[in-house]
């Protein structure tokens, strides 16, 4: 089954020292490299900072724009990965192995047609 892992930004991204951040990023790169290589990760991207986001709201056929991300800063999405695994247990184990000091990962099945 295919799932998307929605990766939130963690406090470590704002608070850690330059060196600590670099170390965590190193671990993350390794993680992505490993699971891309074995075909688990189908596609993955890191997103630009939340303050670069624009939210478009559509109401009664008309749209307005808001100069901020959809979600509160604390839960802002920092990246995503689309993974192909046998079942939810495998997807959850993968999410739990994401090497960050703090943060959340939402695991959602993707509709496959």
């Amino acid at each position: 089954m295919k799932y998307v892992l929605l990766l939130t930004r963690g406090a470590w991204q704002e608070e850690g020292s330059e060196q600590e951040r670099a170390q965590v990023f190193g671990g993350i790169v390794e993680w992505f490299t490993k699971y891309r290589a074995d075909g688990t990760i189908v596609e993955a991207n890191q997103l630009r900072e939340p303050d670069t986001a624009t939210t478009v709201v559509v109401e009664q056929g008309r749209s307005t724009m808001i100069d901020r991300p959809l979600l509160e800063a604390k839960e802002a999405i920092g990246g995503y990965a689309i993974v192909e695994v046998p079942d939810l247990d495998a997807a959850l184990a993968l999410a739990a192995s994401f090497p960050v000091p703090d943060g959340k990962v939402e695991v959602r099945p993707i509709v496959e047609r």
Binding site: M1, Y3, P86, D87, L88, D89, A91, P109
Partner: peptide, 14 residues
Amino acid sequence: VTRAKRKIATAGIP
């Protein structure tokens, strides 16, 4: 109960 059953089926709980 319905929601749980639906999640088992659609989220791929083995």
